[in-house]
Nucleic acid binder design. Structure first.
Length: 274
DNA sequence: GATGTTGTTGAGTC
DNA sequence: TGACTCAACAACAT
């Protein structure tokens, strides 16, 4: 489940692998992976030069010349794998192959087919509703800005963290981990959280995200980086996927609860409601 | 065959 | 109208 740290690592890796390469052709294994807003990939990408790869929210963005942008949302099981020798197997889960003129290639794989890609010009990207509505990057804001955006909201803090219009890039794993570190119950309404605690949450969020990036992301189920290698942050999970296990801080058994439809694991002792 | 998994969206409610 | 909640959806493994 690639969230901000995983997409950051993938993008950084692809930036060094792909920059300067020229697209020769595109093979589509599953046309359904191309978003409705996208231009035609074959005609649009041919002979385009990669100028860099970056991340915005959970999107990996490949910048090409002529202000073209190729965006990928990996959702749950999507992967972008650089294939320098063009010898990786192309299975039924490989939905897109981007061939470069030097015979290297980029594979887009997605077991569950929830992920998508789209090709747009910069001026079109700015009008794509999903992109337009994205909130600020958590690693590029300060705690005053964070508090400002959260303190008036009445919804549970977990659902606000997952709301991409409030803050971009946070998913279930890092929301649960940050809430545990900040000792805040996931269902607590933001409006009821003292500013001092909100600042602690912001600190925790930055800490968790930066640590995950340092450790190469989390490999839960099947995330791999752009060379197909796993990360190790999952070994540091305090709560995610640990329901019933004991809290690493106080030994109390972790419980779970659905908060705005998402399974949330937390420690009833460290993160009391109220 | 039922269940669990997730991010996003659209419908519906307050 | 805005903020919010909930259900549905995508497709697969177990």
């Amino acid at each position: 489940m690639p969230e901000l740290p995983e997409v950051e690592i993938i993008s950084t890796g692809l930036n060094s692998f792909l920059t300067g390469r020229i697209v020769s052709s595109v093979q589509t294994g599953y046309p359904g992976c191309i978003h409705g807003w996208s231009r035609d990939l074959q005609t649009g990408l041919s002979q385009r030069v990669v100028q860099g790869v970056r991340r915005r929210a959970k999107l990996a963005i490949i910048d090409l010349d002529q202000e073209l942008r190729l965006l990928f949302h990996l959702k749950m099981t999507g992967k972008l794998v650089f294939d320098p020798e063009a010898n990786l197997g192309v299975d039924k889960h490989t939905h897109l192959i981007i061939n470069f003129t030097d015979r290297t290639r980029l594979l887009f794989r997605d077991l569950r087919k929830f992920g998508y890609c789209l090709l747009l010009y910069e001026h079109e990207l700015k009008h794509w509703p999903f992109y337009q509505k994205l909130g600020p990057e958590p690693l590029q804001m300060n705690h005053e800005e964070f508090n400002q955006r959260l303190k008036t909201r009445k919804a549970g803090v977990k659902s606000v963290l997952l709301n991409q219009e409030a803050i971009a890039g946070i998913g279930n794993i890092y929301a649960d981990e940050a809430l545990h570190l900040a000792k805040i119950h996931p269902a607590q309404s933001c409006a009821d959280i003292p500013e001092e605690q909100l600042s602690r949450l912001f600190q925790a969020l930055q800490e968790v995200l930066e640590k995950a990036i340092t450790l190469g992301g989390a490999t839960f189920s099947d995330y791999v980086n752009s060379l197909g290698k796993p990360g190790s942050f999952q070994e540091q999970f305090m709560v995610y996927g640990r329901r019933g296990h004991s809290c690493r801080a106080c030994q109390t058994a972790l419980t779970s609860q659905k908060v705005s439809g998402r399974t949330s694991v937390f420690c009833p002792c460290c993160q009391p409601f109220g």
